[in-house]
Structures are given as structure tokens and as C-alpha cells.
Simulated scan of single mutants.
Amino acid sequence: MLSKAAEECSFATHLRIRCADPQSICILFQPTERTENSMSRETLRDAHSHVMGYIDTDASGAQTARDSHMHLLGRYDPQRDVTRDAHARLTGSGNQLAALIARAAHR
């Protein structure tokens, strides 16, 4: 399970995520892009504007997290309110996709 507490930074487009370690990561959520199959994509960037990963949302609200190389990291099921990793193992309750991306970006 990922332990995560989120709080807003001084800018509305940022989300600060604190993981189990005492360091914090500030992630920039870029505006959502729409693809032709009615999916939307959010690009997550670090404080230096490097792409950390992407979150795709389908028409039903289900979300998929991918790293900067488009490798699958996990999925969020809004009906069950759970996040599972790329191997379908339960990661935690609620939407933990940004934390999965932040963890993968710092490996």
C-alpha cells in the first residue's frame, strides 16, 4: 500500500504528494488533452518540467497510469474506489495513480 497525503501547493495546477519518505514531490498537472476515442490524457511533470507520466481517463471514469515511456503502472476503478498496479495487485483505496507515477519516476 502506498501511504500518501496530498495538499495543494501555492498554484492551483500543482499537487504536492508526500510518500512514506520525508521528502515531498511537487507534480504539475497539465491541461487535459482529448483523444479521438473520447479519452482524456493528463501529463504529469516534475518541478523541472520533465514528463513523469500520464493519466488517461476513459468515458466511464476509469483511469490508467503510464510512466514517461508509456509503460503501464496501474489502474483506478472509480466504481470500487480502488487502485491496482500493473500486475492487478491491490495498491490501495482511492485514486493512487499520481503516487504510482511519482514512485516510478524516482527509481
Rank of each mutant, 00 (worst) to 15 (best):
C9K: 08
R18S: 13
G94K: 05
H14E: 15
T91H: 03
R103E: 14
L100M: 03
S60D: 13
S24V: 12
M1L: 06
M70V: 05
R66C: 03
P31Y: 15
Q30S: 13
T13G: 11
R75G: 01
R18W: 10
T83W: 00
H87L: 01
Q96S: 06
S40V: 08
D56T: 02
A99I: 05
F11K: 07
S3L: 10
M52I: 06
R89W: 02
T32L: 10
L15S: 10
T57M: 03
G53T: 04
M1F: 08
D21P: 00
S38F: 06
T13S: 14
R66F: 07
D58I: 01
L15F: 07
R41M: 04
S68E: 14
A12C: 09
M1H: 10
E42S: 09
I25D: 12
S24P: 00
E36H: 11
S24I: 12
S68T: 07
M1K: 05
C9T: 12
A59G: 04
G94M: 08
Q79N: 07
G94H: 05
L2E: 05
A105Y: 15
R34W: 11
D77G: 01
D85E: 01
A88K: 02
V51Q: 04
E36N: 12
I27E: 03
H69Q: 04
Q30E: 15
L44Q: 03
